[in-house]
Amino acid sequence: MNRLFHRNSFVYLLISLFILLTGFIYELFSHGIYSMSMIYAYTPTLILGTLLNAVLERLKAYAPGSITKQIWHCGVATVTVGMLLNGIFQIYGTANKLLNLYYIIGPLLLATAAILYLTKDRNVKEQ
């Protein structure tokens, strides 16, 4: 069993639950104004964190190298923060073009990490 994937999967699950709860509480006090961005802000951590790590663990895949791992985490964090912020702005009734940067930089970091993982920056396959 790959401990790294197992641990990452669990930590991401906790983060997803925390974001889900935060979004739920925020929506409770939003006077009936809903934001899909806020409601689904937990999905990046759940899909790109918990589920992906669970799949990699099941596939007994190579563990990523330190740099790849950090870039991936940064990408997930960027997208998640962007969604939460977008949700807060939507519920408040405002917008900001700077939010686009989260949705550009986040996927770029994820893509970079994915390319690094698929090409070179991975550790020896753990059993």
Binding site: S66, Q70, C74, L85, A95, L99
Partner: peptide
């Protein structure tokens, strides 16, 4: 040092988020 990239990026992300919030409100 092992987590330098993550630490630096987290600080930058926090600062940028703070700027975005202030710029918006």
């Amino acid at each position: 040092k092992k987590y330098l990239i993550a630490v630096v990026y987290t600080v930058l992300l926090a600062l940028f988020t703070l700027y975005t919030v202030m710029d918006t409100f």
